[in-house]
Amino acid sequence: MTATHTLTAQDLTLGYGERTVIEGLDLAVPAGAITAIVGANASGKSTLLRSMSRLLAPRAGQVLLDGRAVHRMPAKELARTLGLLPQSPLAPEGITVADLVGRGRHPHQGIFSRWSREDDAAVAAALEATQTTELAERAVDELSGGQRQRVWIAMALAQQTDLLLLDEPTTFLDVSHQIEVLDLLTDLNRRRGTTIVMVLHDLNLAARYADHLVALESGRIHAAGDPSAVLTEDCVRAVFGLDSRVIVDPVSGKPLMLPIGRHHAEAPVPAEA
C-alpha cells in the first residue's frame, strides 16, 4: 500500500495576467480517495489543478503537500510524488507506445544516468495496468482515441506517484472509452491506493466515480463532499445556471442529474427559487 499524503490548498488565489480566476480557495484532498472537480466552463477547474501540481504559481495562499509548499519543492522531487496528466499532451511524431510510457521515468533519472531494471519494470507494470502491453511497439499516432488516452495514463503511471491529477481525462472519448478510462482509474485507486484528483465535464460520471465531489462556481467552492450531498438540484442551478431533476441512479445508487431545457421537458419546470 502507499504512504498517505495530504494535499491541501490554503487561501489560494490564482489568475492569469490581469484576470483573477480563483480567489481565497481552501481545499483538502482526501488521501486514498477519488476526488472529482466539476463546474461550468471557465469556473477555474483546470487552473486549480495546474496550481496544485505547481504549474501555476499562486498570487496568494499556497498549495501544501504533506505540509510543504509545492512551489518551493524541487521539481523532480515533487514529480516523484505527484503526477499530472494535462488536458492535451502532445505525442512526438512516430514515437512508440513503450518509448512514450518510458518518458514517465524522467523524474527518477539523472541527466546522464542509464536505464535501470527498475525503470523497465515500471514501464512494463504501467503497460500491464492499462492493458497496453500488446501495443508497446506500435506508433502512438496510429492508435484510436481510447487507446491513446490509456497510453498517456500509462505514462503517468510509469512515473509511480502516490497522487495522480488528471485534467479531463475523458474528453474526446466516446461513452464506452470514457467508462473504460474511469474504471481503470478506479482500479488504480482501489488496488494501489493512489489518490486521484480529476477534472470532469460529465456531472453524472463524476458523481458515479468520485468519492469526493467538488463543485466550483466562478473560482469559489460552492459545495464539496459526498456526491449524494453535493449533487442537488439547487447546486446544479447555482453552479451551471440550469434547472434539473436529480434522481437516484438505478445502476449505481448515486445521484443522477437530468437537465431541463426549454424543450422536451414533459415534467413541470420548478418555479424559480
Partner: peptide, 22 residues
C-alpha cells in the same frame, strides 16, 4: 511510492529488449 502490481518478468524483459534494440 506506489507499488504497481509487478509485471511478469517476461514482460519486463520484452520492454528491456526493445529499448536496448532501439
Amino acid at each position: 511510492m506506489t507499488a504497481l502490481l509487478p509485471a511478469p518478468a517476461a514482460d519486463v524483459d520484452a520492454v528491456a529488449r526493445n529499448r536496448v534494440r532501439r
